[in-house]
Design a protein around this nucleic acid. Sequence first.
DNA 1: TCCTTTAATAGTCACTCTGACTATAAAGGG
DNA 2: CCCTTTATAGTCAGAGTGACTATTAAAGGA
Lengths: 243, 243
Amino acid sequence: MSAAPEGYDPHAFVPFAVTVDLAVFTVREARLHVLLVERGGEPYKGGWALPGGFILPRESAEEAARRELAEETGLTQDTVGGLHLEQLRTYTEPDRDPRMRVVSVAYAALLPDLPEPRGGGDAARARWWEARDLGDLAFDHGRILADAYDRVGAKFEYTCLATQFCPAEFTLGELQQVYETVWGVELDRPNFRRKVLATPGFVEAVEGPPRRTGGRGKPAALYRAGAAAALHPPLLRPEGRTG
Amino acid sequence: MSAAPEGYDPHAFVPFAVTVDLAVFTVREARLHVLLVERGGEPYKGGWALPGGFILPRESAEEAARRELAEETGLTQDTVGGLHLEQLRTYTEPDRDPRMRVVSVAYAALLPDLPEPRGGGDAARARWWEARDLGDLAFDHGRILADAYDRVGAKFEYTCLATQFCPAEFTLGELQQVYETVWGVELDRPNFRRKVLATPGFVEAVEGPPRRTGGRGKPAALYRAGAAAALHPPLLRPEGRTG
DNA sequence: TCCTTTAATAGTCACTCTGACTATAAAGGG
DNA sequence: CCCTTTATAGTCAGAGTGACTATTAAAGGA
């Protein structure tokens, strides 16, 4: 009565199209932004969607995601190759694409603020949108984006992922800004500082005496991302809410 | 140069087979067990694999996973419908199945110890294996199982998932046993107890005076799973290691 | 029946981590 | 020179936890 009695039967499978979709986040001017592309064809023509595309015959989903990311952002393959791509989950509802059965593997990527909003990809139009006050997206991409946002917020609690939003060298104030933007809360500066510096491998001080300022005020010491991937113990959100 | 310039082109996609694979865990006699099925055909004929199968044309992946789980375990659709199925990740390496391009969405399920190891599914043979000292599994199922194990261990830290391994009513000692088995550590009993009882919604006391014993000793109070899904603050593993 | 064993439950104490603050230092602008 | 701004240092009380010790309630054997 079922699909595959013992092991797979290679002649009885149902063909699906498999795509990757990318939730690409950046923090610009203390606000969270998402990269969206405008749809050039039906359905949802003229609407906005997450960047993505089909997995090629000899590609893994992650390779496809990196390729698409490079195409949409104009980043070099090298840069994209070093980024952490977080596989979120796979969306399989039968009617999520009105034309055919499409299964989509969703990834999240975190980028520092880029000089140019987008590179010369082949998508009709791509641009950064502020994450809040987004209208409806094409397909189930609104749902995917919401899941991505939840995941990133949760991962900030127990990983060093936040440094991915920062340039190579950053101040603790900038790192705190990233947390505040993603979590949508204000953090106490001395406490944040104490916690970050007390976590081995989270950040490491940049040696040279060079310092920098964000406008007025005392110049801040510079740090770069450390070697650690996880935070022990975690840096929990105030009023902890777990998506 | 790429797959889908603007939006999907429904005529240019590459067809994939899409399956679900299940990592089904249970705790029997203080040891972690996994449900495996014996392969009846090539490749890996006679080897052991995770239960799973193709997604049907009008099914979501989660529906397919529940259907397969019911078939392999003999649980009723109702029982399976109430279980938490954790979508792990999706495995897409081009050569993970030697016959064809198969993309697999992996799920983890946690069951209380079942009276019968398996129901009358249509898999060649299915049985519980102790999680450690497993030989090699078919396909990339060893990798999937390792990922599933890591995920379950991590989720135990900040969710109430552990109660899924327990029957409807259980003692705190049994719940602790589950944690110790999954994490592979010993926990201090009074501290575990204090933590669990101090977490609102984790467990709730079963009213009646009925008590039960695990052999000798003082009878233990019974509890059932509470309404909470998350633990605040988390119950961290000693020597915290994050897979 | 008393004593030993076993397991559940109660309680203590010190240490760490955190939230909420206050204080000081180093810049720029009027 | 004072005022504003931002970084950095430090203080203090309360929550949470690890490591214990003590007590209670059963079963089983001498």
